[in-house]
């Protein structure tokens, strides 16, 4: 996995003023809403890309709630990640339509090409790709669906998976 992120600078708001400012802005905007914790965490996940343990501590202190509560929420919802993902993410839809439409084959192909399992991130040097499964992205009529970063590809064939991954590797 991502051992490249050894320095906590990137993920600790108390050591990274820029990150702290970003999170403060989110906190200020939403802190007065009832049930604001979910809103804040959602925004942080979307804008920062992850909610590290240090960020959880920071949010808990700012909202005056126990860290355990923040942690409980983070661990409950699959949308939150505590670690930064790879530079690129390739997601395979395992919703019903996509499963029936052949996404397991696509995953097989990608595993072979990337040499990793679902949920892992490649480590070779300058390019990191995270491979994940996801549930229905709402494009079922185009099953099977693959999502590369934010781009959705429909009716994907195994050969297309090769193309997509090669394109990412080229892009770096």
């Amino acid at each position: 996995m991502l051992n490249t992120i050894t320095n906590t600078l990137q993920i600790d708001p108390t050591q990274n003023p820029e990150l702290a400012a970003q999170i403060d802005a989110i906190l200020e905007e939403h802190r007065n809403k009832p049930g604001c914790l979910m809103v804040v965490l959602n925004e942080v996940q979307t804008k920062v890309g992850f909610v590290s343990e240090q960020i959880q501590d920071y949010i808990a202190a700012s909202l005056h709630v126990p860290v355990s509560k923040v942690h409980g929420v983070i661990s409950f919802y699959s949308f939150f990640t505590t670690r930064p993902r790879g530079k690129h993410t390739i997601k395979f839809c395992l919703g019903t339509a996509c499963y029936v439409g052949g996404s397991p084959q696509l995953i097989e192909k990608a595993k072979q090409l990337l040499g990793i399992e679902l949920g892992d991130t490649t480590e070779d040097g300058n390019i990191s790709i995270t491979m994940e499964a996801c549930r229905c992205v709402g494009a079922c009529s185009q099953a099977p669906v693959v999502v590369v970063d934010d781009t959705i590809y429909g009716r994907v064939k195994p050969s297309k998976v090769t193309q997509l991954i090669r394109a990412l590797e080229k892009e770096g």
């Binding site: 049930g35 604001c36 979910m38 809103v39 959602n42 509560k69 409980g72 929420v73 549930r135």
Partner: peptide, 21 residues
């Protein structure tokens, strides 16, 4: 916004989720 938990479609779970739990 939800955060990727299917069970939150269930009404009592959804309510807790809006409450930030």
């Amino acid at each position: 916004k939800g955060a990727g938990a299917f069970v939150c479609g269930e009404e009592t779970a959804l309510i807790k989720s809006i409450e930030g739990k």
